[in-house]
Simulated scan of single mutants.
Amino acid sequence: MKKVLLLLADGFETFEASVFIDVIGWNMEEGDGSTQLFTCGLKKEIKSSFNQRFIVDYVADEIDVNQFDALAIPGGFEVYGFYNDAYADKFLDIIRSFKAQNKIIASICVGALPVGKSGILKGLQATTYNSDIRRKALAEFGVQVIHQPIVEDNNIITSWNPSTAVDVALLLLEHLTTKSNADSVRKLMGF
Rank of each mutant, 00 (worst) to 15 (best):
N181F: 08
F82E: 02
K43R: 15
A137C: 07
E16P: 00
E30H: 15
G33I: 15
L42K: 05
K43T: 12
Q144P: 09
S97A: 14
G76T: 01
K99F: 03
C109Y: 01
S184L: 15
I108Q: 03
A106W: 01
L42N: 05
V23H: 07
K117F: 00
P149I: 07
G119K: 12
T158R: 10
D89S: 12
D64C: 10
I63A: 06
L7C: 01
A106Q: 02
A70G: 07
R53F: 13
L8V: 07
L188A: 11
S97R: 11
S49A: 13
Q36M: 13
F20C: 04
I21Q: 12
E13N: 06
F50P: 06
S163L: 15
E152G: 11
E30Y: 15
F20W: 09
V143F: 06
E29V: 14
N161P: 07
D89T: 12
V110H: 00
I120Q: 01
F15D: 05
E62K: 12
T39A: 11
Y87Q: 08
Y83H: 09
L171R: 09
D61G: 13
A100C: 06
V115H: 00
N66C: 11
K179E: 14
L6S: 01
E29G: 09
T177K: 12
S184D: 14
L5A: 04
D22F: 06
K43I: 11
V145K: 03
I105Y: 00
W26V: 13
I156S: 00
A126S: 07
L42V: 02
V115N: 00
K47P: 03
F141P: 04
V115A: 03
L172V: 02
V59W: 00
A60Y: 06
K2E: 09
P162D: 06
T39S: 14
R186F: 04
G123Y: 07
A88M: 08
L173Q: 03
G116P: 04
K47Q: 11
D183F: 06
F91I: 02
N155G: 09
A60C: 14
H147K: 15
F50R: 15
L42S: 02
S97Y: 08
G111W: 00
I95S: 01
M189K: 08
T14E: 15
Q67E: 15
R53K: 15
S107A: 13
V56Q: 06
V168M: 09
T178C: 11
K47G: 05
E16Q: 10
T14Y: 11
V59C: 09
K103L: 03
G190W: 09
V143M: 05
F77Y: 13
A182Q: 08
L113Y: 05
I104R: 04
F15G: 04
L92A: 01
E45A: 10
K117S: 01
I133Q: 14
A182W: 05
V79S: 15
